[in-house]
């Protein structure tokens, strides 16, 4: 009886401290948490597309449009390697920022952007060379829908990176933390992982 009261009393001042501290909400932490929740939800859209792709592929007798043999794999493979490597580059950029090496950060960050752009351009070249279009049967639709929706995410990733790069030019911008950079980087990894699945589904599983 006695001991329980004392233990309660000893806890309470500690809690009261927390309560008094109005600014105690960890805004950066909230933002990161919310962003992760959002990405998990976003991944369900991709999952739905993947499931739809697999279901239609398995049940459609005339899967490829007439005259189409399949997709060329070698160029997209190079593209894939570039995109996946950029995930490592962005990781080092982030690390450089944490060590306050701003210049190194900017260089690596730019490199990531360049690699992302390379991927997009490669994708565009592939699109132009294909002999089927968006409305060529269900295959064409699915191909462009999946790669296009992913490409849109890459584009958004690059734009976000540009934004963060711009902000890094503001003096002392990262003095109070860098959630924005962390989130952009997380987004980039997400886009990469999605691409790996997409690559297996569309190019490897023909």
């Amino acid at each position: 009886m006695d001991s329980s009261i004392t233990s309660e009393q000893s806890i309470q001042p500690a809690l009261a401290d927390v309560a008094h501290d109005h600014e105690a909400h960890d805004h950066a932490g909230n933002s990161m948490f919310g962003f992760i929740v959002f990405l998990l939800s976003e991944s369900v859209i991709f999952l739905s597309f993947f499931a739809g792709y697999a279901m239609i592929k398995l049940t459609t007798p005339d899967w490829l449009p007439p005259g189409v043999e399949g997709l060329e794999v070698s160029a997209p493979t190079i593209n894939t390697i570039v995109l996946v490597s950029s995930s490592f580059v962005i990781y080092f950029a982030e690390r450089a920022l944490k060590q306050n090496k701003l210049v190194q950060f900017r260089l690596l960050w730019l490199l990531t952007m360049a690699m992302g752009t390379y991927f997009l351009v490669g994708q565009a070249i592939e699109w132009r060379g294909l002999q089927f279009g968006l409305t060529t049967g269900i295959y064409g639709g699915l191909f462009y829908l999946l790669t296009g929706f992913h490409g849109l995410h890459v584009l958004i990733g690059i734009l976000l990176q540009g934004l963060m790069l711009g902000r890094s030019l503001i003096p002392n911008n990262y003095a109070n933390g860098h959630v924005g950079v962390d989130e952009t980087s997380l987004f980039w990894h997400f886009v990469d992982v999605i691409w790996i699945v997409l690559f297996c589904l569309i190019y490897l599983w023909q």
Partner: peptide
């Protein structure tokens, strides 16, 4: 929406959709 405005065939049985 793509089926309606862009003419894709995702859900159009005439053209292999489901």
């Amino acid at each position: 929406l793509f089926d309606i405005v862009a003419g894709t065939a995702f859900f159009d049985p005439e053209r292999g959709g489901n």
